[in-house]
Amino acid sequence: MPYIPCCVQCHTRENPCHCKVVGPTLGFVGFALFALVEWPVGALVWCFRHHKGRRIMRHPANVVYPRIAAAVPI
């Protein structure tokens, strides 16, 4: 049986049960997919332009995960 990631965020005010499972889990999956592409690209860019490479490698954690996790209220 394959491992299925499940993320839980408690004490939220976005729904009646004050707990989110679907949004954070989809956010993690999106983060992982984007990180597979952007981290090697960021590492390559970092060799020439340090600031730009760091910004590329931060993108999945700073932009992708929060937007996907916040888009799904449950």
Rank of each mutant, 00 (worst) to 15 (best):
M1E: 10
M1C: 06
M1I: 01
M1Q: 11
P2M: 01
P2I: 06
P2K: 09
Y3W: 08
Y3E: 15
Y3T: 12
Y3Q: 14
I4P: 00
P5Q: 06
P5C: 02
C6F: 06
C7D: 08
C7P: 05
V8H: 08
Q9C: 12
Q9G: 00
Q9E: 05
C10A: 14
C10N: 07
H11V: 07
T12E: 09
T12D: 00
E14P: 03
E14R: 13
N15M: 01
P16T: 03
C17W: 08
H18S: 09
H18R: 09
C19I: 14
C19D: 02
K20A: 02
K20E: 05
K20V: 05
V21C: 04
V21N: 04
V21H: 01
V21Q: 06
V22P: 00
V22F: 03
V22D: 00
G23E: 07
P24V: 06
P24F: 10
P24W: 03
P24Y: 05
T25R: 04
T25S: 10
T25Q: 05
T25W: 01
L26C: 09
G27Y: 06
F28W: 04
V29I: 15
A32E: 10
A32T: 11
A32C: 06
A32Q: 12
A32G: 05
L33I: 14
F34N: 00
F34T: 14
F34E: 10
F34H: 10
F34C: 15
F34P: 00
L36M: 11
V37Q: 03
V37K: 00
E38S: 12
E38P: 04
E38F: 15
V41W: 02
V41D: 02
G42P: 06
G42T: 07
A43K: 08
L44K: 11
L44D: 09
V45D: 08
V45Q: 03
C47Y: 02
C47R: 13
C47L: 15
F48D: 01
F48L: 12
F48E: 05
R49W: 10
K52G: 02
K52L: 15
G53L: 00
R55E: 11
I56M: 02
I56E: 04
I56R: 00
M57C: 13
R58G: 12
H59N: 07
A61N: 06
A61F: 15
N62F: 12
N62R: 11
V63E: 11
Y65L: 08
Y65C: 08
Y65T: 07
P66S: 09
P66D: 04
P66W: 03
P66R: 07
R67T: 09
R67K: 14
I68C: 05
I68D: 08
A69Q: 03
A69D: 14
A70Q: 12
A71L: 06
A71H: 04
A71P: 02
V72N: 06
P73T: 07
I74R: 15
